[in-house]
């Protein structure tokens, strides 16, 4: 769906985004993570046509138009991190206005606006002035507005920033719904736990460069967890420690009273064989599990402890 090729943005001698290449498949919910100033917002703005790229290209689907062209704009729904609303304008009129801005007909707008307001739980607020809505409601209205012209790609720049916990949960549920409807979504957020719950793939940026990108599970497995195993032992600890130390491809990380933690550089089959050997050598196991990686630790590992944003 979204193909970014060698995208670079320079401000004088400062490079905000450097040679960024990324592919987001159709129907994917892609989480964009990185510390402050990593270049996430700059990248999103370049894709939206709100910022001119110094070099590189952006392609969405099979659209041939350049960034900022009418064809490209029709493909994108954009929700910025901060946005304002107009005074003295009702929710319905707000939707009407943006529908007209996308060249939609009044009847079409009315029907779609009703459906979308229903989707974002604002159908009872149609006749309410937008400036009187809460921040969470405004954010959901902005998502409805971004979906009005039925874009193929939804770009959300920190949509949960400044929202209270309830509004965050509502936003997360809304995004999950949209994902289940088949929308391709790119979301940047600093709430990593939320991203890890809903995203199918992630990209981590730091200092304007994309450090890693891909399927969430794969990345977590390759970079953080997936290789660490906890073995809980009831009896035969000495034998177990000796065997683990002697076993090639296994590094003993820590030994506790009833538990050892190992790092396996081999395959999962090798670990299964090792467990079998321990049992054959009269080591009684109480438990055995693979440590799951999490986005927070992965983020800290890749960005050198930088503050997520």
């Amino acid at each position: 769906m979204l193909y970014i090729n060698n995208l670079t943005k320079k401000y004088g001698s400062f490079t905000a985004v450097r040679q960024l290449s990324l592919h987001i498949p159709e129907g994917d919910l892609f989480g964009f993570v990185g510390p402050n100033g990593a270049g996430k917002t700059t990248t999103i703005r370049m894709v939206c046509g709100l910022l001119r790229a110094t070099s590189g290209s952006v392609k969405i689907g099979n659209v041939r138009g350049a960034v900022g062209s009418r064809e490209m704009k029709r493909m994108i729904g954009y929700v910025p991190d901060f946005f304002g609303v107009y005074d003295n304008l009702k929710v319905r009129e707000y939707m009407d206005m943006y529908g007209s801005m996308y060249g939609m007909y009044a009847r079409e707008i009315t029907k779609l606006a009703d459906d979308l307001l229903e989707l974002v739980n604002l159908s009872d607020k149609k006749e309410v002035y937008v400036d009187t809505l809460s921040r969470g409601m405004k954010q959901r209205l902005c998502v409805a507005r971004a979906l009005l012209h039925n874009p193929k790609l939804l770009l959300l720049d920190e949509p949960s920033s400044g929202l209270d916990p309830r509004a965050r949960v509502e936003m997360k549920e809304l995004l999950k719904n949209l994902h289940s409807m088949g929308k391709t979504i790119l979301i940047s957020s600093h709430i990593l736990s939320e991203l890890s719950e809903m995203c199918t793939s992630i990209g981590i940026m730091n200092h304007g460069q994309l450090i890693t990108a891909g399927c969430m599970e794969e990345i977590l497995y390759q970079l953080s967890g997936g290789k660490r195993f906890h073995i809980q032992i009831s009896s035969g600890m000495e034998t177990a420690v000796r065997m683990l130390q002697e076993h090639a491809g296994v590094e003993l990380e820590s030994v506790m009273e009833n538990e050892v933690i190992i790092t396996n550089s081999g395959t999962e089959e090798e670990i299964s064989a090792l467990i079998g050997e321990l049992i054959q050598n009269k080591v009684i196991l109480r438990g055995f599990y693979k440590e799951e990686g999490n986005l927070e630790s992965l983020f800290m590992q890749l960005t050198g402890g930088g503050e997520p944003s």
């Binding site: 939206c48 046509g49 709100l50 009418r70 704009k73 029709r74 994108i76 954009y78 910025p80 901060f82 946005f83 304002g84 609303v85 107009y86 943006y98 801005m101 996308y102 060249g103 902005c142 507005r145 012209h149």
Partner: peptide, 14 residues
């Protein structure tokens, strides 16, 4: 100032 400009510029209006 109202932060509505960016959204306006992402629409199909020239």
């Amino acid at each position: 100032e109202r932060q509505t400009f960016d959204i306006m510029m992402t629409t199909c209006m020239s």
